[in-house]
Design a binder for these strands. Sequence first.
RNA 1: GGCCCCUUAGUCUAGCGGUUAGGACGUCGCCCUCUCACGGCGAAGACAUGGGUUCGAUUCCCGUAGGGGUCACCA
Length: 471
Amino acid sequence: MIAPRVRFAPSPTGYLHIGGARTALFNWLFARRHGGTFVLRIEDTDRERSTQAAVAAILEGMRWLGLDWDEGPGVGGPHGPYFQTERLDVYRAQADRLIAQGKAYACTCTREELDVLRKQAEARKVQFRYPGTCRNRAYDPAQRHVIRLIVPEAGATSFDDLVKGTITTPHDTLQDEVILRGDGMPLYNFGAVVDDVTMEINLVARGDDHVNNTARQILIYQALGYPVPAFAHLPMILGADKTRLSKRHGATNLMSYREMGFLPGALVNYLVRLGWSHGDQEIFTMQELIEHFDWKQVGATAGIFNPDKLLWVNHQWLRALSDDDLARGAVPYFAAAGLPAADDQKLRLIVRQLRERAKSFVEIVQQARYFYAPIQLDEKARQKQLTAEARPFLQAVRDGVAGMDTMELAALERLFAEVAARAGVGLGKVAQPVRVALTGGTASPGIHDVVQILGKSETLARLDAGLALIP
RNA sequence: GGCCCCUUAGUCUAGCGGUUAGGACGUCGCCCUCUCACGGCGAAGACAUGGGUUCGAUUCCCGUAGGGGUCACCA
């Protein structure tokens, strides 16, 4: 196989969408798999909606996921510039060439005139097609005009999509398409093709909302006289109600998943598995993804975004981290929650306990709150556990801890076991009241670990406070 | 509505003419257990539908239904 040159070409009209991230990812994986080139191009010809902030957000998202680009903003490359608005002369030149060759023409029909025709077509319930009014009109550059490509009336264009198979579009469903706007801006189909040609892209992988653009683009490649690249159209990501994923389904901004405590690798893992598979394997490292990625295994059906599965994947990734990495990764999330956790031994002990219990950094923070802040006593837990019956157990544990110099796990285990044995009750009778006094609730890591992490003085203080609450 | 695409459990999928239709998330049950998790074991749960082709269809073809996409001087 010749080295692939693929690209991701987002419009900077907002943050990096989770679907866009997936498209970028598939392109990136394919490039890395085959030692190809991954190009990042910014399609900013919609000046109304494009912003510099959005460009920055997209680059940030790409970097967070670890999708490095070989050519594009920041890194340059031999086919730049990589912003479409900096390439207007290229489009103009190509359009002029098409006009000179009689393959395109200037059209002076106004939007208003066309709207009238569109309405009429709608009233007659027929598909509107530009009637070709200006096809044979003389080219007068002085008059405001758009440039249209001459599209054949008969026949059809088809191509073999790498994921969807052969797709055929009859030409009578197409029309003389506008390729250059009145203000000189290229339209999407033209800009994308000219750029893909000049950037030597040989495989175009994008969302399947572009399937219907492909025949139009192939016609442009042919008019321009360039080879047509391969195409791969990725199925959309849908929400739980099977409609296109949007804000009402939850976060669609890639970066909000960082805020929610997800690991970029986990998100990548989930996103790839949504529509791609490698046997029964669920968890992949980046390296494994690169090794196994293949368009053949990309499914043709849209996938529903499943937050539960994402969380599960994230958990698998989280628990695979070392104590050090887990602690270091968690620090910013504690800070965001206003908790004074430092990247120290205490945190490492905490995350060691929480890695099996929390599925995201945010959950780690939630479950570790009482290690860094006063307990928030759950009322039901208090009523059930901080009772007269529990008083002697709390007192015995308190006295036992008070008599210990260091919080050794083995010693703590012995203490709890002895208190329970002496009273002839199960360990739970002792551990639960202590747990409520120490954590405020009934769910936590093992009680010995909790005591050890809290340390002697804090444990005593909380036990005393708990004892004081017993009526 | 026209055109294009899609259709295995609630969800992601394996399957590539002959399988007790496999795995994963989620759900439920049991075990482990100081709670919560983790882990282990187990359960329920799918080939949209009607015709073909074939000795035999989840698998190939056609229709129907359902879903998605797209019909701009947006991308």
